[in-house]
Computed example of a mutant assay.
Amino acid sequence: MRIISGEWRGRKLTSPKGDATRPTADRTRETLFSMLTSRLGSFEELRVADLFAGSGALGLEALSRGAAHCLFVEQDRDAASTIRSNVAALDAGMRTAIESGSVMGLRAAREPLDLIMLDPPYRTGAGEVALDRLLRLGWIGDATWIALETAFNEEPEIAGLTIETSRKVGKGRLTLFRREPACEPA
């Protein structure tokens, strides 16, 4: 597994051993970042989160492309250790925070993030539950983009979020969300 683009293009990343995590395939990651780039234009100075982070490949890709900071959240101990190793190998420690624990353990946000990427276990509904919670806790603002990877036959729906686009890629589906606009009083 390698960084696709940016400052660390071509640099190798390690993956957690075993089958407790499912790293996002290079092709899927490339498609996701193409979808995001066409909407965001640039990752420069974005504050991002990589949730259900596994190896941290999504967040590290965003940092390589210019994101200012990434929060990684991973509950599997070995995977969290792998993220730490990958961050250290890229000398990215000053631009990262790593939370070892469940996404559901996150507290209220001080301010919304610019981009939230989630790659939860397929067919569990964990991504939808997490996004519902993050929306209520202020992690998602009007300008936040959300990228959720699910199994190809899952069609996620989250109250308060609108699907901007969805694309099947191999065994997965990439869905981009935005917060629903607030209704103006009549």
Rank of each mutant, 00 (worst) to 15 (best):
R9I: 15
T14A: 10
T14H: 14
S15M: 07
G18I: 02
T24Q: 11
A25N: 14
R27Q: 09
S34L: 12
M35L: 15
R39E: 13
E44K: 12
L46E: 09
R47P: 01
A49M: 06
A53S: 10
S55H: 07
S55D: 06
G56Y: 00
L58Q: 14
L58W: 06
L60T: 10
L63G: 04
S64I: 11
S64G: 14
A67C: 02
A67W: 02
A68R: 13
A68Q: 08
H69A: 10
C70P: 02
V73M: 11
Q75A: 03
R77G: 08
R84Q: 12
R84K: 08
A89R: 13
D91T: 14
R95L: 12
I98H: 03
I98E: 09
A108R: 13
A109S: 02
L113Y: 06
L115A: 04
I116Q: 02
I116M: 01
R123G: 06
R123T: 07
G125H: 09
A126F: 06
A126V: 04
A126E: 12
A126G: 06
D132F: 03
D132M: 11
R133K: 01
L134R: 07
L137F: 13
W139Q: 01
W145D: 09
W145V: 07
I146C: 00
N153L: 14
N153G: 09
E154Q: 02
E154F: 00
P156R: 00
L161F: 02
T165S: 12
K168Y: 00
K168M: 05
V169K: 05
G172S: 14
R173F: 01
R178D: 08
A182H: 12
C183R: 14
C183M: 15
